[in-house]
Amino acid sequence: MTNVYLAEQQITQSPDSIVSDMNGEKVMFSIASGKYYNLGLIGGRIWELIATPTTARELVEKLLQEYNVSRTACEEQVDAFLRRLHQESLIEVRNLEAHR
């Protein structure tokens, strides 16, 4: 998982968002950007898992326990998902390397 985005960085939800659960899908409003997003079912689960700071590595391990998906596919798709969340400023990232 060395090439996965944010693999060794701590990720958590940005506090500047209002989230609603709609039939299992997470729909959210970003106060900062004024935009609305739908994270869907899996995205919603990932959102729940980053309610407390976690690394992408830990996140993938939890998802592999819950879902029927290969490690490679999970890593690649979670990687792309986290990139998008970061682009939209929906997550906060802390570099663990700076604290070692």
């Binding site: 609305y36 997003y37 739908n38 869907g40 079912l41 899996i42 995205g43 879902y67």
Partner: peptide, 18 residues
């Protein structure tokens, strides 16, 4: 077995006017 079905996680931006 007993694992949930996986779907590609996406970030869909909603057009609120629609």
């Amino acid at each position: 077995t007993n694992k949930k079905e996986w779907q590609v996680p996406t970030v869909e931006m909603l057009d609120v006017s629609e």
